[in-house]
Amino acid sequence: MRELFDKEGHLSDLGVSHYVDALRTGKVDDLPRELTGHVGECKECKKSVLQLHAVMRDTGPGKSEKYYFFDKPARPQKRIYFSAYRIAAIVAFFVFLAILAFYFIQSTDETIVFDDLPPVVTEEAKPPVAEEEKEEIEIEEKEIDRRLYAANFEPLPLYESMVAQDYRSYGVEVLAPGVGIEIHDGVTFEWEIRYSDPLIVTILNNHGDHIHQNTITETTYRFDNFPEPGLYYWRLETEQRLLYVGKFVVPVK
């Protein structure tokens, strides 16, 4: 889905054209919620979608036609073109493997002696690593960890644009956690809401991957099983609509 957004979190050209396809085929409900949610809030993206929709009016396929993404399961399509030569090469490769396997099975009774090979160095026989070398390795490892952690704190533009939006028509007020605060020993989500529908809490990392999801009826929820330090986003929603998007940080200990 990342290709549907640009670096600033707005719809990319592909995102706009995909939205227009959905409008033209009456499949807007099948679009990712992140896409419809962003367009609902963003004037510039509304302009882009409406403009392309107007440009493509009276052209191309309509509702009656079968239509790509929405009518078949989306799968990455690799551009591999099988020619007769390629198929022949693959068959020859497997024949070669079969001959090789047959040869080794036949020769298992023989003992092969490698006199010239150097002796195998076992763990005990290895010379002790110098203290300085150990320190260097540790420093290098720490540097790698630091870089990996830094990547975990990169903001996700799509969700940044949705954080702490006001969804008041549903009467929800989020009390905790505050936007962007640091979480040390787990996080307690807390809100006030006028209605008693079951709510879905979803926690995502800064790549948009779901870390945790649960459906609850209370107005508080606790979670402390974070896989690693980083920037996390959370969504509060009903089956039908998104109510709130927040974010918090799990710092490096």
Partner: peptide
Amino acid sequence: VQYNPAYNLQSYFSKIICN
């Protein structure tokens, strides 16, 4: 580079022309 064949190329191309 940017096109993903899982999506409709005609619409994507129209968007590029529009731009």
